[in-house]
Structure formats: C-alpha cells, structure tokens
Amino acid sequence: METVRTGKVWKFGDRISTDFMMPGHRVLANPDLTPEEAAKFCMEANRPGWAENEVQPGDIIVAGINFGCGSSRNGSQSLNALGIAVVLAESVSRIHLRNAVNTGLPTLVAPGISDFVEEGQRLEVNIVTGVVTNLDTGETLQAEAWEEGSPPYEILMAGGLDAYMRVKVRERGLVAE
C-alpha cells in the first residue's frame, strides 16, 4: 500500500450521504453494474457531471461532517472506482468508515480540514502517520491516524477486507493451502 499520496482536491460539504455516492434507484435496480459503471452515478444528485467529466484518478476528496451518512451501501466502492486516492473529512459515519477500510480506500478523520484547503489545491497525505500537507500553502494538519496494529489498520494495509480474509481463511484452515 502506497503510504504517501498527493492529489488535487475536490471539496464537498457536510453530510454527504451514501445515497449521493450510490443512488439507490440507479444501483440497486441494476445489480449487474460493474463498480466502474455504478461510479458514473456518483454524486449525480448533488454535483451533476462530476463523476463523468471532472474527477480524475489520483484526486482527493475533502468533506465536512458525517461523510458517508445514511445507507450502508458501499459508497467507497464508487469512490475507489473513480480512482480517488484519499478521503479526508471532518468526521465520517461509522458504517462508511468500515466500508472504506474494507474497500482499501484510505479515509481519514481530519478535524479542521475544511478550512485548511481550497478546492483545486494539492495535498500530500501520509495515510499512516496522518500528516496532511497543503502543497500550495506549505501548511500541515494532523489527521487522526489509525492505531498501528489495530484491526482496521491491518485490514487497510492488507489492501482491504478481501485480501485480509484470503490470508486469514487459510491460516484458520477454512480453505486448503
């Protein structure tokens, strides 16, 4: 897992729900959609055209409080498919945070981040230490780092739950070596 990531910032407001990331009427009705196809609808209700024309792989999302509130639909899957490198938010819903860890998309709680960076500026984020540097202003901000060795840290560093589980089911003898 690449621990230092740089990218251009897209800013979102408070309470960006998973309904925004993965609209129910688009995604649940079409279970055959690939993650890439589903991602085209990401934020269409609150920021039309963003997913299809604006965001680029390697970009960074900065958001306000309770990012990923609402449904347990895995909004991180769509963000991941769009190539988002890191998500930084004032706070993140519990369900979304777990989904993000399990998807292997670094998502950090970063109090103060909304005032720290403007849309379009570039950030460098160390996803292990939580140090965020604004490459345009030179300022730094400390995001909450995952506790080293904690289960979410291990899962994130493994690249997500699937990779983590593949090792664990072998170790526990649930599938043959």
Partner: peptide, 8 residues
C-alpha cells in the same frame, strides 16, 4: 451494521 464485514 456490518456490511462487507459480515463475511468475516
């Protein structure tokens, strides 16, 4: 809620 986690 356990979403993807439920597989664990």
């Amino acid at each position: 809620n356990a979403n993807l986690d439920a597989v664990h």
